[in-house]
Amino acid sequence: MTTHIKPALLMLLIFTLLTGIVYPLAVTFSAQLLFPSQANGSLLGTKEQPLGSELIGQAFSSPEYFWGRPSATSPVPYNGGASSGSNQGPTNPALIASVKARIKALRDVNPSQLEAVPVDLVTASASGLDPHISPAAAKYQISRVAIVRHLSPNSVSDLVDRYTEGRQWRILGEPRVNVLELNLALDQHLK
């Protein structure tokens, strides 16, 4: 039985070199060659002055911005260095209390908006970094953003449409709006 000790150690060493060093280096080399932007985090803006990542959401809580999904990362929401969901179960009183507070916060900043709140706007995402909201959640916020920014609801609505992505290849996933890109465009719009 001990005859296998030596091959076991040597095989482990060989496969550590092959799959632990050669393979990741080969993937990195190919990735940096073929898809340098994606491999380094899909950053927006310029290389010297990145403005965030296309793929990672940021926290927004002022009424002049579109708000994203609630985020359960700690110590701050949308902590890109520590992704996490809330892991609250459906019958957890803490979840019910959080959703209640989130609905109230949305109603407080726009009392004239009386529709039921799209559920993704009041529930924490899985990653805590979800860059998207549903088109329904974006539409829900158009009137507020338009009022606060003194813009016509139509121009804000046009902007939302421009940043609404359909299903990939018309089939896969769900339609969605990139919140960070939309808010960056809103700020541009003002200038």
């Binding site: 809330s86 892991n87 979840l95 799209p118 529930t123 899985a126 979800d130 088109p135 959640a137």
Partner: peptide, 11 residues
């Protein structure tokens, strides 16, 4: 405009 359903813990 939305997937709806139980979106807690989903992206």
């Amino acid at each position: 405009d939305q997937a709806g359903g139980n979106m807690e813990g989903k992206d």
